[in-house]
Design a binder for these strands. Sequence first.
DNA 1: TCTATAATTTTGACTAATCAAAATCTTTTT
DNA 2: AAAAAGATTTTGATTAGTCAAAATTATAGA
Lengths: 222, 222
Amino acid sequence: MATSTVENYLKEILVITLDDEISKVPMGQIAKVLGVTPGTATSMAKSLERDGWVRYFPRVGVSLTRKGRKLAMNMLRRHRLLETFLVETLGFDWDEIHVEAEELEHAISEKVLEKLDDFLGRPRFDPHGDPIPSKGGMIQQIASKPLSDFEKDTNLRIESIIDQNKEFLRFARKAKLIPGQLFKIIGKEVCADSITLKTSRGKLVNLGFRSAEKVLALPYES
Amino acid sequence: MATSTVENYLKEILVITLDDEISKVPMGQIAKVLGVTPGTATSMAKSLERDGWVRYFPRVGVSLTRKGRKLAMNMLRRHRLLETFLVETLGFDWDEIHVEAEELEHAISEKVLEKLDDFLGRPRFDPHGDPIPSKGGMIQQIASKPLSDFEKDTNLRIESIIDQNKEFLRFARKAKLIPGQLFKIIGKEVCADSITLKTSRGKLVNLGFRSAEKVLALPYES
DNA sequence: TCTATAATTTTGACTAATCAAAATCTTTTT
DNA sequence: AAAAAGATTTTGATTAGTCAAAATTATAGA
């Protein structure tokens, strides 16, 4: 059985791998995200390799083995399901949940996790809009991205609304923010945390970034 | 901050103290419930004393300091609230929850715990009928007694089941012998070592004295 | 009281995880 | 290409928690 330290290392290695699209994660980066000294990360890399979680390339970095990736995916699943629970069920705000989930993910058993998944209605995305890996470690591959990721003047088509919140869904429907609908981003003010969209019929919609993150879209060639 | 090992030691010391009504818990007993060797318990006792959690009396045992008792009570609160959540919200059976709560209780933050408490409606008893200590570490004292202590024709309400034995818990659940349930003693044969109960709906249950001692109840004015 | 048994403590050793600081490679700059 | 800067690894040490087995102390029985 992996200790929770091991679980943390593997999870972070996975996240970096996915984010940066690299195969070997350098030690320094691992040390930084985990808040340990580089020396610690190196010695940990050796233990992880000894136990078959990663391959270690001295002076280059580590990559997950199949076994390591499986465990890491499972940690991501735990983390994101727990975040969903904290927001949906207990009413936490987005900015508080990461730290809490970080602790709980090591303590929750497979059994409790599955019951929780049922209870939540088997959500496929967490409150941040990130995909929740399936039980088998598969991650929902989506080409669509949150509205907030697109630049000004992009034409796009709404693909899905992540948030299950009733209020938001009501608002979205009213604003024609529904799958299939075509929009153009006519304004994006990062510092004001605001995005303005225009429908093909000229209707305007303003969204804060928090809301814009809940709306997934695909670019659309007009 | 206390490690989860420390939390476990303190919680078990508290539970033994409450159950056996003793003030100094001998090392051997601690070692047994925690599944460690006696030597480990002894060396741990010294660390616990060094950090002000317990007083250690060589060759006699340990007792909790005020600080230690406070933490231990808090652990009991966590444990019992989590058990309640697992049963009430996620639909677990009685016999599965102890182990799960045992892990989660170390990972759940005060913040999440309070939200959970709200969500559950601030319950005062856990699914076994044991009192959930308040935030301040106060425990609800109830004068429930074993079924076998009551006389014929008494109306009573089940408060808790002492035994954690799986078979017995399963049987108890089936027979509606669960906290909150109302019964009347309609038969008691001391010489035959037998007690007969009737639910408010007329269902009959027979118990031997040995089992009747495991079920705590309070008299109930009908 | 003296001995056998039970409980507790000591001792020496081990693993996981960490740090600080020195040593060693790599990469970049001049 | 040499020097400087940056990243990585080594080395030596520390802490928490644990075990096995020997040593010590209590307790109970004859």
